[in-house]
């Protein structure tokens, strides 16, 4: 085989090897790093593995916020079911009763342990699922 061809073959093999490795890495991390999104009703009936990080979206129920030091407890509702949430820390400015939230965390024994609460820049923000439900109702 010509030297040039040999070189080219080697290059091709290296490129194929790298891209195969890259793509399998990507697919592997995609599948293990997904955060599934649930509304309270979906969460209560879904079969969620313990220790699996998920997202919960809904409204903070009016009058449900309880504080103890830096610990905050509140209920997230979608107007049919509600899920109790606990969070340790300072929530974002737009976190208040009767407004939409998205929370990242773990669901364990009927309680949601929040790791992070997401604020939206838009003060009128509501999770899209709830908007649709409201229009339907």
């Amino acid at each position: 085989m010509l030297q040039v061809r040999k070189n080219r073959l080697w290059k091709l093999i290296i490129i194929l090897f790298l891209s195969a490795g890259g793509i399998s890495l990507i697919l592997f991390s995609l599948n293990s790093k997904l955060d599934l999104f649930y509304t309270p009703s979906e969460m209560l009936i879904a079969d969620i593995k313990p220790g699996y990080r998920i997202k919960l979206g809904g409204m903070v129920k009016n009058g449900s916020i309880r504080r103890d030091g830096t610990l905050i407890e509140f209920l997230v509702t979608d107007f049919s079911e509600e899920v109790p949430v606990t969070f340790d820390g300072v929530p974002p400015d737009l976190f208040k009763e009767d407004s939409g939230v998205v929370i990242l965390g773990y669901f364990l024994d009927g309680r949601f342990e929040a790791e992070e609460i997401f604020a939206k820049h838009d003060e009128n923000y509501m999770p899209p699922e709830l908007l649709i439900d409201e229009v339907k109702a």
Binding site: S29, K33, L34, D35, Y38, K55, L104, E129
Partner: peptide, 18 residues
């Protein structure tokens, strides 16, 4: 029809070897 999102862990695993 499932809602999912992809956060920092995905990008961290991808970018470290690259």
């Amino acid at each position: 029809g499932e809602k999912v999102s992809i956060g920092p862990p995905y990008y961290n695993t991808i970018f470290a070897p690259l």
